[in-house]
Nucleic acid binder design. Structure first.
Length: 121
DNA sequence: AGCGTGACAAGGT
DNA sequence: GACCTTGCCACGC
């Protein structure tokens, strides 16, 4: 099978996504940072879009830095993601999630998250 | 090999 | 906040 997305990077990204706790969310850029790939938010999107293993990941806990879902409002994917998030307690206000409240990692535990990945500078 | 596209983000207006 | 512009870079054609 084709490794597509720089295999290595994809693995790191998937690992990072898998770490987002239930009832919490993380931005694409946040996942990229935790994965040790700062500035590569789009790569996270590419992985989720192309990776066949996404079924096993909490892909619905990933959203944009502004707290909005990446899918167009009204689309089926949007509905499913929002349904899954609300099912685990993540609330929406005006179509967006308050990252200060449901975001992960929290500022205080960012270091810990990076250490866990063994990617801290 | 070149080019448009995209499940993004940060900075400026 | 909303909108634009620029940076990013893997993918497909």
């Amino acid at each position: 099978m084709k490794a597509s997305v720089a295999d290595d990077a994809a693995t790191k990204i998937c690992t990072a996504i898998a770490r987002v706790p239930r009832g919490r969310v993380c931005s694409y850029g946040g996942i990229a940072r935790v994965a040790g790939l700062p500035g590569r938010a789009r790569l996270v999107g590419t992985v989720l879009r192309t990776s066949p293993t996404k079924r096993e990941l909490p892909w619905f806990r990933i959203l944009t830095a502004s707290g909005k879902l990446a899918f167009p409002e009204g689309s089926e994917p949007y509905a499913e993601q929002r349904r899954r998030l609300e099912a685990e307690g993540v609330s929406f206000v005006n179509g967006r999630v308050d990252l200060k409240r449901f975001g992960w990692p929290r500022e205080a535990s960012l270091d810990e998250a990076l250490w866990g990945m063994g990617e801290a500078q």
